Structure formats: C-alpha cells, structure tokens
Simulated scan of single mutants.
Amino acid sequence: MRVVTGNFDERSDAARSRGDAVGSDGLAPIVRSVVEGLSPGRALDVATGTGRNALALAERGWTVDAVDLSSAKLSRARERATERGMAVNWILADVDSYCLPEERYDLVTVSFFDARGRLPALIDALAPGGVLCYEHYLASAERDAGPGDRFRFDSNELLAACSDLAILYYAERRVGDEPRVTLVARNETDVPRWRPQFPSPR
C-alpha cells in the first residue's frame, strides 16, 4: 500500500539512482528528502547506533539528541563527532524506558528499529508541526516467517499506529530481498489525538 501527498519517493529514488543509497552526507534517502523541505530545528534520532543520521543532521544545522542502548556504539559516534567537529547530545539509554519530553522535537527519525511500544511517546515528543520519519522492515510472508518477524511491522501496522498524524508519505515495498515500510507524518495540532495501545512484541 502507498499513500503519497509529497514527492519524498521521487527524491529518494533519485538519490538511489545516483548510487546514493546512504549518501555522501550520511543520511538515508528518505531522511534527506524530508530535511530538504525543513528549516533546521531540534531533532531526535532513535536507536542512533554509530550516529549516521544524527551526525548528518548536526552538519545541516540541527540541534540533535541521539539515543542508544549500546555504550560501544555511542563511543564510536562520539569519536566520529569529535573528528568532524560536530556537537550532538548523545544519550545512553534504553529507548523502551527512556522518558521522552513532550512537544520538543521538530523531527524524530527512527531507522530500522522496532519502536512500536514507544510510538505514543514519540508522537507526543513532536512539537506542533514536527515530522516523524520512520523506516523499518516488514514481516515476511507467512510461508517465510521466521523468529525475527516479531520485531517487524505487519502490513499497514505502522500506518494505523500513526493515524492521528497527518500522513505525508507511506509506502510498503521491497528493497532487494527485504520488504520494508517507510512513513513520513506531521503533527498537525488541529487534528484530534488518538493514542493506540500496543501489545508486547510477539
């Protein structure tokens, strides 16, 4: 399924066609497509790992909070930030229990991490007009299902979970052999807020 109200897909595809799957600036194509249309503000990078998105956003003038559970990965991220002269607020914490501030972020990015249990808090963390950019894997077809599928979204699950936001872009498609889902959504303050309840990962 695909819902599109912007040209994020075209810009992402153009980046891939240039051999820019991640990009010389370090941003994933969909994140780059989003930030090209935004003025720098405050961003949250969820499960940042070694800080690829966080550092690229900081280089573009964003004030970035980056959260991850791995001290080793954050140490590498800090080293990379020092090498590049970038300032990022690295937060060593478990995303599943980290206390997110409300209405703080103009951009929240989640790349290939199962944050479905924290989606209500991530949505609440968006400032008015703030944008959520989420890319993750989809569960395999039932005949191919494996144990890792419990950390992946079912078809339309992410779309339904974010239905209280204004959906700017939504797509489910295969990238190579992997089924993926991509969502870009904005916090429109005049839309009534709905808070889904999420079961524990299957």
Rank of each mutant, 00 (worst) to 15 (best):
Leu132Ser: 09
Leu165Asn: 06
Gly176Asn: 07
Gly19Phe: 03
Asp124Gly: 05
Leu92Lys: 10
Gly146Glu: 11
Pro179Asp: 10
Pro29Thr: 01
Gly51Ile: 07
Glu172Cys: 10
Ala54Arg: 05
Thr82Glu: 15
Tyr105Trp: 02
Arg52Leu: 13
Asn53Met: 04
Arg202Gly: 15
Asp154Ile: 00
Gly19His: 05
Pro101Asp: 07
Ala56Arg: 04
Phe8Gly: 01
Arg52Gly: 13
Glu103Ile: 00
Glu10Gly: 08
Asp68Met: 04
Asp68Leu: 03
Leu159Lys: 06
Ser12Cys: 11
Thr109Arg: 01
Leu27Gly: 05
Pro199Glu: 09
Asn187Lys: 13
Asp96Thr: 13
Glu103Lys: 11
Ala141Met: 12
Thr50Ala: 15
Tyr105Thr: 00
Ala14Asp: 11
Leu165Arg: 03
Arg84Cys: 01
Arg16Glu: 12
Leu69Val: 15
Arg52Lys: 12
Ala28Arg: 11
Asp9Met: 15
Ala166Arg: 13
Leu165Trp: 04
Ala77Glu: 05
Tyr169Asn: 02
Arg202Asn: 12
Gly19Met: 05
Thr63Glu: 14
Arg11Val: 14
Gly130Ala: 07
Ala72Tyr: 13
Val64Glu: 02
Val191Met: 14
Ser163Leu: 03
Leu119Lys: 00
Gly117Ile: 03
Leu168Trp: 11
Gly51Lys: 02
Tyr98Gln: 02
Phe113Thr: 03
Asn89Trp: 00
Cys162Phe: 05
Glu178Met: 10
Phe151Asn: 11
Asn89Glu: 14
Arg78Ile: 06
Leu27Trp: 01
Tyr169Ile: 03
Leu38Tyr: 03
Arg173Ala: 14
Arg174Tyr: 15
Pro196His: 06
Val31Trp: 01
Ala115Lys: 03
Glu102Ala: 15
Arg52Val: 09
Ile167Trp: 02
Glu59Tyr: 00
Gly49Phe: 07
Thr182Gly: 02
Phe153Ser: 07
Ser17Thr: 11
Ile30Ser: 01
Ala87Gly: 08
Thr109Ala: 02
Ser155Glu: 13
Asp45Trp: 02
Ser33His: 05
Glu79Met: 04
Gly23Met: 08
Val4Gln: 15
Ala160Ser: 13
Glu142Trp: 12
Gly51Glu: 07
Val95Phe: 01
